[in-house]
């Protein structure tokens, strides 16, 4: 007993001494010391680091092929540099503007209708007083999050097909059947609604967690002051939810043009390309399938730059009123 406490005392003295010493040492020898002492931690992180370098950073820096005329057999090192030629090409290309317009339109609709949906739903959930009902309803709302877009796309196609249930209901009311999935005018609506259907429930979780964190005494005080439920939402819940909303908005705006390949790819048909072909599906067809690697990488780079600019602008705006991401 006594021995071990003396040992501990010594050890702590030792660590104080080394701490003092460490401050004097330069960074490199501090790292060498740290590696020697905690080499197992360094060993543990090697697989993870390799993963992030190979699958995240190499592709990120691989974007330089946007400035090359990339040849498969020469690779990045030996492919000729063409600098901005690929960008000149895409900006003079009619199809690019159509794809860009589709992407921006769908992204805009998703922001306007898709972003507020989970906030509203979370507020509605929060007003439910019957616990068993709340739990059941929430469980049902979370379910579609776990289905793949292939399955959801399949469901959408089946239900909206000529023999599908939607047209069956239309027939009951004497309306003529509609080929929903093949008609341009319905495509974006279907994208937005199916997107909300799949993710609205899951999206409420983060807001519900934030609402749970609100101090109940605020509501009690408001009730004493005569605030009804609507006023409590308007003057307590929403303002206190605002920082969460803002952060999620910023995270969203950075990926503004990245709509998600899976969703569009599984809803698109050649008949709806004119309104539904987005950057990601176009890049897949022209890049992966047709091998125009450099041009499509340039489009991808353009998309990332726009995303980052939007994030930067909105982050500046956010910092003026509240706090931003950085």
């Amino acid at each position: 007993m006594g021995d071990s406490s003396i040992k501990k005392q010594r050890e702590s003295n030792l660590s104080i001494n080394t701490n003092v010493l460490n401050k004097k040492k330069n960074l490199i020898s501090r790292y060498l010391d740290n590696i020697k002492k905690n080499w197992m931690l360094y060993l543990m992180i090697v697989p993870g680091l390799l993963y992030y370098i190979i699958f995240k950073y190499v592709p990120l820096f691989g974007s330089v092929i946007a400035f090359q005329d990339y040849q498969i057999f020469s690779g990045i090192l030996d492919s000729p540099w063409v600098w901005l030629d690929n960008f000149k090409y895409i900006f003079s290309y009619q199809d690019f503007y159509q794809v860009l317009r589709n992407t921006v339109m769908i992204a805009f609709y998703q922001l306007i209708f898709g972003f507020p949906a989970p906030i509203i739903l979370a507020l509605l959930f929060n007003e439910v007083r019957l616990m068993f009902l709340k739990r059941t309803v929430q469980s049902l709302f979370y379910l579609p999050h776990f289905l793949s877009w292939v399955v959801v796309g399949g469901i959408v196609f089946e239900l909206l097909a000529l023999e599908g249930i939607v047209n069956a209901i239309r027939e009951l009311f004497g309306a003529a059947p509609i080929l929903f999935m093949q008609e341009e005018s319905y495509f974006r609506t279907i994208v937005v609604i199916s997107g909300i259907w799949k993710s609205v429930g899951w999206g409420t979780i983060i807001y519900l967690a934030a609402i749970t964190g609100i101090n109940p005494s605020l509501y009690e005080a408001a009730v004493i002051d005569g605030a009804n439920r609507w006023k409590q939402i308007r003057y307590i819940t929403l303002p206190l939810l605002f920082p969460t909303i803002l952060i999620l908005f910023l995270l969203n705006i950075g990926n503004f043009l990245e709509l998600g390949f899976d969703q569009i790819f599984n809803l698109l048909t050649p008949m709806t390309y004119s309104v539904g072909d987005i950057i990601e599906t176009y890049v897949y067809r022209a890049g992966v399938l047709q091998g125009q690697f450099s041009v499509t990488t340039a489009i991808g780079l353009f998309q990332s730059v726009i995303g980052f600019m939007l994030l930067w602008i909105f982050n500046r705006l956010a910092r003026k009123s509240e706090q931003g991401l950085w």
Binding site: P59, L60, G62, F308
Partner: peptide, 12 residues
């Protein structure tokens, strides 16, 4: 924040 772009990811 910076997702790996599709084509360089594919090539990697």
């Amino acid at each position: 924040i910076f997702n790996a772009p599709m084509i360089p990811y594919f090539l990697t």
